[in-house]
Design a protein around this nucleic acid. Structure first.
Lengths: 188, 188
DNA sequence: GAGGAAACGGATGGTCCATCCGCAAACGGG
DNA sequence: CCCGTTTGCGGATGGACCATCCGTTTCCTC
């Protein structure tokens, strides 16, 4: 990635405002905020919103960037755990937790294709990290046969989805992660 | 439920046409079919569609009615299995399978509130059946502590969601059901 | 502080939703 | 069979939202 396109002062300010408002609204459960309303709340014209975020998905990806960073950090940490099973534990639990905490991340992570190339790259990298860990777990024989990194990703998304039905429920998320984790272990 | 409101001949025909077209399109992956297009394809006016199905959700519930019947039947069968663990197995596997096979059912089942009172009643009944089975499994000590029937429902929805990421994948659905099933068993 | 580049903003056209009501078709008694 | 009543039909319509486009404003550099 080339360093950064260097935004003009007002552009940076407006972009931040829009993101702030959107984040606040999303945290408040307002998942379908119209773009013109968002613009109004941010004290900005609609065009400005669309310039910074070509479509809804791009906005979501920007909103999820922070959480994606954290998830990436967790994955790296998990990948270097001495015990691969402990690594998987950490990966799954933190993944589901982050997905439940951040609706934007859930959306981005569940989606099949990305809007920003940046987001695509991040996801690919994350996948590679997870795969490395999974390979190690498989080599150690502690995980079920036939489980791929795609399965892991889909399971995490699924659990995030599950723990959101009827309002985000972090406690349920934790429990579901534990259940799947137990199920993923190689049958002894 | 009082027997049936006795639809007039043309009304029944039109209703069936709309449902047929909608089912076909949905099966073809067209999840966001505009109502006026649907009406056009069914050779019917938009008003007719809205009369039979006040909103999108009601249409989905009608589309899912068949699958919901099947799910209900499976749940009853599962509830009378002698071995409660086998019952849970059957319930989970068939639930996830049906959800992956029928997008409408996935939608209805994941949603938090219903449009039709009929659908609400069906879901409540299904929940009761599942709860009965779960109680039995708990009494036999074969299932994790603290798992509620709500958890079961959410997990099934979550797995359905997971097995749909990147296109419905029945094989993955089966595998995920197996994983969660293993995880649900009481740790020995 | 002047020139050029970058960003702004909101009017605009397009799509879809959902309603409403004049009209047509179906039912049932005579 | 025919006609009155009732039920359902259809599509024009208004409103919400999306996404674009371009004249105007703001910022940066020299």
């Amino acid at each position: 990635m080339p360093p950064a396109p260097e935004l003009r002062a007002d552009a940076a300010r407006n972009r931040a405002r829009v993101l702030d408002v959107a984040r606040g609204r999303l945290a408040a459960g307002d998942t379908a905020l119209p773009m013109n309303v968002l613009a109004g709340l941010a004290g900005v014209g609609v065009g400005t919103v669309y310039r910074h975020f070509p479509d809804r998905r791009a906005l979501l990806e920007a909103l999820a960037a922070d959480s994606l960073d954290r998830l990436d950090a967790e994955a790296r940490a998990a990948a270097v755990e001495p015990d691969p099973l402990a690594g998987l534990d950490r990966l799954l639990r933190s993944g589901v937790r982050l997905l439940v905490e951040d609706a934007a991340l859930q959306e981005v992570f569940s989606g099949t294709d990305t809007s920003t190339p940046a987001a695509a790259a991040r996801l690919a990298e994350l996948t590679a990290t997870c795969d490395e860990l999974l390979q190690r777990a498989r080599a150690a024989g502690v995980v079920r046969e036939g489980v791929t990194v795609t399965d892991l990703r889909r399971l995490v998304c699924g659990l995030g989805h599950a723990a959101r039905i009827g309002g985000p429920d972090p406690r349920a998320a934790e429990a579901y992660a534990g259940i799947v984790l137990a199920g993923l272990r190689a049958p002894s």
